[in-house]
Amino acid sequence: MSGKSIVVTSGKGGVGKTTTVANIGTGLALRGKRVVLLDADIGLRNLDVVMGLENRIVFDLVAVCEKKCKIRQALIKDKRFENLYLIPAAQTREKDAVTPAQMKELCDELRKEFDYIIIDCPAGIEQGFKNAVAGADEAIVVTTPEVSAVRDADRIIGLLQANELYEPRLVINRIRPEMVRKGDMMDIEDVNDILAISLLGVIPDDEMIIISTNKGEPAVMDKNSRAGEAYRNVVARLEGEDVPIMSLDNNHSVFQRIKRWIGM
């Protein structure tokens, strides 16, 4: 078996990389895939809490790379899915505690055991970024519809291509349909036109994400969450299914549209 490694990156911090990693990974596991999540954000470990696995950490990524433990020992099994694992980042070390060559070697080993390796890349474009992309076969770029996030995404796309990841795919996170409708937020088309890479998914801004992060349970498992549904679609597309981008408007009736149009 030879799995695929996918790095999730953004350039700018706080756009939802870690949330995206947790949801894509859990979504793939829901479909029965063998998945390992790799937190490459050394020094700022977070994927463990988003997954609700913070109490189970013994070994971490740095320990694995320095061969202080076996890969198997650092794999934390998820609470809910037995085919889902996490290798946490080290919390106490520096970003350059790991080298790109070590990351590549680790991904090559993991590929033998798993269908998917999802790598959570740190914000920024320094050593941590270089480590995170070193072992990746594909890349996902997460952005929000804001000037600063899109600008950084554009920069990251260039850097990914310089690292031979030529076809990164885009996830536009935290779209607010109401603001788009008022002309106060860039829409999918605006962002897509500017970045000009293929669109993997659009995630609506959803309070359920905050609630699910509070609990350490990825929203993709929640049937009632709009963001969860959007992530399930992203996962289906990763698996090669042709799923249309979902409509972001909640109410479609003509009456409600007229009401909205006249501003009631």
Binding site: D154, D184, D187, I194
Partner: peptide
């Protein structure tokens, strides 16, 4: 008066800044 939202400004500023970045 459609284009009155701030999005047009966002798109325009982004395009300009990206031309220079790229």
């Amino acid at each position: 008066f459609r284009d009155s939202g701030s999005k047009e400004a966002a798109v325009e500023r982004l395009r300009l800044v990206l031309v220079h970045d790229r």
